[in-house]
């Protein structure tokens, strides 16, 4: 049987492991310290744990950190890292430096099930959920790990479709015994999978970003199949149930497609839909992908759209496109080319 990874276990899980292996309770805290504060990659480095216990641990477990396989750098400084998962599949993470921030965009799944019309990740289908360790590994196994100021769950996959592992990763990142980050440095995106989104809102304090893309049901259905089961009004109604306080932020991501969702009527309907939800809107330029009938709105149209929203007192930003030349920009992450060819398919 292959050895399990320790990296990615929560403190409670580590305590259970220590108990099972007959180790004193304090070893769990020491282990968490080595894994998440000192970020060591081998048991021998854990010098305050007895040699005997280190040997027991290494018999049954591995640390579980893996290096990236490849890195590409954009002209704008964005870097795209490729990682291999335990099951020999591939994921990407994007490091996006700016003047004030060093943001890492992590993946939560290999591929995605959601099938959004405009997303490159969706075109590779779904391969697997990432484990907590595989999510966190993207953070700690890049050279810029100690410089990171912000983390966004906006890479490959729908985070709310892997909610258990995403929640555990957030627990490790934000706990005192873990990376001890403020949850306000983290933003998790979703297309609106309501039950999991509810769990995230109630059990985490991180920011929430919702991919909206059209205020009209019929049109959103055409762009995002999720609308068939969780319509955007129900997402809004769910948000209105909660008091997010002053510090926690909700934002709506709105990719602008030429002649599709960029009219002043769309902007006005968006304002109506958002009424009662204290949120901002990020307008995103669409990066065309193969086999899509959509093209991006012009800068002029995006500015006009922004003006309509701002006239209605909605805080709006046009998000800068980063890493487009290396396919690291929003909606472009994909490892489809690395999937096995001639898979046994039923279609």
């Amino acid at each position: 049987m292959s050895k399990q990874a320790l990296f990615g276990k929560t403190l409670n899980e580590i305590k259970d492991i220590c108990k099972e292996l007959g180790m004193p309770a304090f070893v769990a805290k020491q282990l968490a310290d080595w894994l998440y504060k000192k970020k060591v990659s081998e048991f021998d480095s854990m010098v305050n744990i007895s040699k005997k216990n280190r040997a027991i641990l290494s018999e049954q477990y591995i640390i579980g950190l893996t290096n990236y396989n490849k890195v590409q750098e954009s002209v704008d400084g964005t870097k795209k890292y490729l990682f291999t998962t335990v099951s020999n599949q591939f994921i990407e993470a994007a490091y996006i430096p700016s003047e004030n921030r060093k943001t890492l965009c992590v993946s939560s799944q290999v591929g995605c099930k959601m099938g959004c019309l405009f997303c490159m990740t969706g075109k590779q289908g779904f391969q697997k959920n990432l484990t907590t360790g595989e999510i966190l590994n993207q953070m700690v196994s890049i050279p810029e790990t100690d410089e990171l100021t912000n983390l966004v769950y906006m890479g490959m996959g729908e985070p709310m479709d892997n909610i258990e592992e995403v929640m555990k990763s957030l627990e490790i990142i934000t706990s005192d015994w873990g990376f001890a980050w403020s949850p306000r440095r983290i933003n998790v995106s979703t297309i609106g999978v309501i039950p999991a989104m509810r769990k995230f809102i109630e059990e985490s304090e991180a920011h929430l970003a919702i991919s909206l893309h059209s205020p009209y049901n019929e049109q959103r259905k055409e762009l995002m199949p999720i609308e068939n089961v969780y319509p955007i009004e129900q997402v809004m109604d769910t948000l209105k149930e909660y008091d997010f306080g002053r510090q926690r932020r909700i934002s709506f991501e709105y990719i602008m497609f030429d002649g599709v969702n960029d009219s002043p009527e769309h902007a006005k309907e968006l304002v109506r839909l958002m009424s009662g939800v204290n949120a901002r809107i990020n307008l995103i330029k669409f990066h065309p992908i193969p086999d899509t009938p959509l093209t991006g709105s012009s800068d002029v149209i995006m500015e006009r759209f922004k003006e309509v929203l701002e006239q209605k007192k909605v805080i709006t930003t046009i998000r800068k496109s980063r890493g487009e030349d290396i396919y690291a920009a929003c909606g472009l992450l994909s490892t489809k080319k690395m999937l096995e060819k001639n898979q046994d398919k039923d279609y």
């Binding site: 099938g115 019309l117 075109k123 289908g125 779904f126 199949p225 899509t292 039923d346 279609y347």
Partner: peptide, 24 residues
């Protein structure tokens, strides 16, 4: 399954069917 849905949708789109006419 999502892979079928996105692959077949791309094929249909490539044949000139407007995306408004595809429900997934």
């Amino acid at each position: 399954n999502p892979e079928m849905v996105v692959d077949v949708r791309d094929l249909i789109l490539a044949k000139g069917v407007p995306f408004e006419n595809i429900m997934a």
